[in-house]
Amino acid sequence: MIIEPLIAICIIIGLVFSALGIFGLIRFPDVYTRLHAETKATTFGSIFIGLAVILYALFRWDDAGEGISLAAHVLIGIIILMVTNATGSHAIARAAYKSGQKPDPSVTDALADVEP
């Protein structure tokens, strides 16, 4: 009985953080701050949707063995999502800086001394 509200809470957290990531993507002023909102919030949201699927597969699946298999697959998917999103956003930030975009509203820029 406690599983259904737990799954619903996980789905709601996932949707709220995904929505915040997308609104940050629309709202923030330059590419680096957009990357902040997008990488962190949508990854967190997708992880919580995956957690909801894991809970459902472990406790509410008809065939128990198949449910455990599905949960393991989703767990591997979540780990891959975390590693690849972090590395990919690093690559995009580096490429944006190399292509000549400076952080537009910015307090300090330590990289400008090293890479003009």
Binding site: G21, I22, L25, V31, R34, L35, E38, T39, T42, T43, S46, L81, N85, G88, S89, I92, A95, A96, S99, Q101
Partner: peptide
């Protein structure tokens, strides 16, 4: 700019 588009594509993939 094109980095913005790549960021949006990354969000869509996630």
């Amino acid at each position: 700019t094109s980095p913005d588009r790549v960021v949006a594509l990354d969000a869509i993939n996630t």
